[in-house]
């Protein structure tokens, strides 16, 4: 897939995910844990594109979240960029067709982003934060699988 095409499609997917996250995220709370739909889409998209340049999609996701949250704008932008880059660097497409890796990427990207966020912007109740971070990572892992399956045709090996 040409880098420009993949990134454009990725940017569209992340933007749509962000709108869905803002509109529906608060209705998807399970046991007090809310998924991060933007990250749940960002992880499979990064995996399917499989290049270091997916960091830009992470920056887009973080900046959009930061513009609505207003607090910790920089921490959100940087943590999402690093999470996307980490998934995109999984040896460029080697793992893109594995369902298990998609689930693992959903879990690791959410947990990694939350850990990085905590490093940049320490939170007042660490135990509660850790519970929410692990819960969110598991929730995102469950969501990443169907999202990966739905997005796979949109990001073929060559466009």
């Amino acid at each position: 897939m040409k880098p420009g095409v993949g990134l454009r499609r990725g940017a569209a997917a992340v933007s749509i995910a962000f709108v869905a996250d803002m509109a529906l995220g608060s209705r998807m709370v399970v046991w007090g844990v809310r998924p991060d739909l933007t990250l749940a889409v960002l992880a499979p998209v990064s995996l399917l594109i499989g290049r270091a340049s997916v960091a830009w999609l992470g920056l887009l996701a973080g900046a959009l979240q930061g513009s609505f949250a207003s607090v910790a704008f920089g921490s959100l932008s940087v943590s999402r960029s690093v999470a996307a880059w980490g998934v995109g660097m999984l040896e460029e497409r080697l793992f893109r067709d594995s369902l298990a890796v998609a689930a693992a990427a959903g879990f690791a990207s959410a947990l990694g982003a939350d850990v990085l966020f905590f490093v940049f912007a320490p939170q007042p109740y660490p135990a509660e934060y850790a519970y929410m971070a692990v819960g969110r990572a598991l929730y995102n892992m469950a969501l990443a699988v169907p999202i990966w399956a739905a997005l796979r045709p949109v990001f073929p090996r060559s466009v």
């Binding site: 608060s26 809310r34 929410m132």
Partner: peptide, 8 residues
């Protein structure tokens, strides 16, 4: 949007 970021 309600709680746009899970952290804030």
């Amino acid at each position: 949007a309600l709680k746009p970021s899970a952290h804030v």
